[in-house]
Design a protein around this nucleic acid. Sequence first.
DNA 1: CACACAACCTGTCAGC
DNA 2: TGCTGACAGGTTGTGT
Length: 278
Amino acid sequence: MPELPEVETVCRGLAQRLVGRRLRRVEVRRADLRQPVPPDFAARLTGRRVLAIDRRAKYMLWHLDDEAVVLGHLGMSGRLAVKADPAAPPATHDHVRFETDDELVVVYNDPRRFGLLLLATEATLAGHPLLRELGPEPLSAAFTAASLRERLGGRRGPLKAALLDQTVVAGLGNIYVCEALYRAHVSPLRPAGALSAAEARRLVTEIKAVLSTAIAAGGSTLRDYVQADGELGGFQSQFVAYDREGEACQSRTCRGGQVITRIVQSGRATYYCPRCQK
DNA sequence: CACACAACCTGTCAGC
DNA sequence: TGCTGACAGGTTGTGT
């Protein structure tokens, strides 16, 4: 999916276009996403004004003018994009269509239907089952080496899997975990609970750095990810580990003396350098 | 509680 | 060209 930087990019793009606008028409063309779109979704959104759009982990939050909040997730293949031609017929996998009072059309398209669009309220948001257990935002001041080590304490499974656990830190996915571990020179195979303070500091620093850089570049572009305005993100070319199996490791210590290796952990691909990631 | 794994659904790509 | 199988950014439920 869209990991945190991609969701952030989509949120910013959508906010520019939607905040202050009123939703004139909402059409649910296909409700069977990861969780069903509520039957009253369209009715409850119609006529509402969008006050703000923000993000928690990989969830998107649309705050409406009646205390309702749209809770969205893009899953693996979801996109929310402004339709260039509002009059064009729906594309394959266009599941939900939002039309504003100024003729803007935003479409939720999701081939795999792993995403979701739900409704909550401002009052129930914090306690929502999907948000309740989430760990700290990695770009917040609350995410520190000390807090990370505390959450990893007692875990003997591999660090890679622990960092993908959204209750440890919220918003990382497979790509940025690989990239952050690589940049921090920490092995994905290390038992999560055995991280030293210095390693945790490096890791936290690199997690923040890689996410910030990716957001600044407008997210990354994989097969089916597009920003809110349909533009491609610019970060993909900056991956130094992810999907680079067999390529020379560029780190200062390796100097091309080792190649990026692909292994499988918990059923997911991990890319790392066995020499400089200890 | 921690962890591995399968499942959810569809598209793409490599190999035959 | 067509078929088959592996694989893909995520999350959740089940079983050990």
